[in-house]
């Protein structure tokens, strides 16, 4: 009777197999061709199969070898969600709000992911960084992004 001796690797192997399947599925309409006349689907398909094979080997290994000693896992879901959604929010708001308010919101929002943060520091840091980034990117490097976007009425129009 086989027993999973290394749960993390077992999941890892399964994930690799899933990734391989996913790429084969989404690439199913690509022409594969053969080794002498490779089509656009040849490389991705072969690699996906290879990845699945490696995934299978990782699973086999996880059934034989014990997991080594590792640090215990800790999870911090609040931080994950904030830090991952931060850039997404940045991307969504940038064109509308402009660089300065977006940066301020991002920094203040991000800082709450840390347990040591306090509002006064975060807001000061946010203001400092928005001013810096506007000076550096909008003014100095003339990145095509305005300091204040069209969603900010009246003032935004001027920029």
């Amino acid at each position: 009777m086989l027993k999973i001796r290394n749960g993390r690797d077992f999941v890892g192997g399964v994930t690799m197999i899933c990734v391989g399947l996913l790429f084969i599925w989404f690439g199913r309409e690509l022409e594969v061709g053969n080794s002498f006349q490779m089509g656009p689907g040849y490389f991705p398909t072969m690699l996906s199969l290879l990845l699945m094979a490696i995934g299978a080997l990782i699973i086999v290994q996880s059934l034989i070898l014990h997991a080594g000693e590792g640090e215990p896992e800790t999870w911090n879901w609040k931080a994950y969600i904030l830090v991952i959604l931060g850039p997404v929010g940045f991307g969504l708001l940038l064109s509308g709000l402009g660089l300065a308010p977006t940066m301020l919101l991002l920094v203040v929002g991000m800082a709450t992911a840390s347990r040591y943060a306090n509002w006064r520091h975060s807001i000061l840091l946010g203001l400092f960084l928005s001013v810096c980034s506007v000076l550096l990117f909008t003014k100095l490097l003339s990145l095509p992004v305005s300091a204040l976007g069209p969603w900010i009425p009246f003032i935004g129009e001027l920029f």
Partner: peptide
């Protein structure tokens, strides 16, 4: 707790600046 929001902020702008598009931020 002060350093990492700044890093993320600059990463976002850096990603934006690649093609001047928010797609790379996503």
């Amino acid at each position: 707790h002060l350093l990492f929001p700044a890093i993320i902020g600059f990463c976002c702008i850096g990603a934006y600046s690649i093609n001047n598009s928010v797609f790379d931020v996503f």
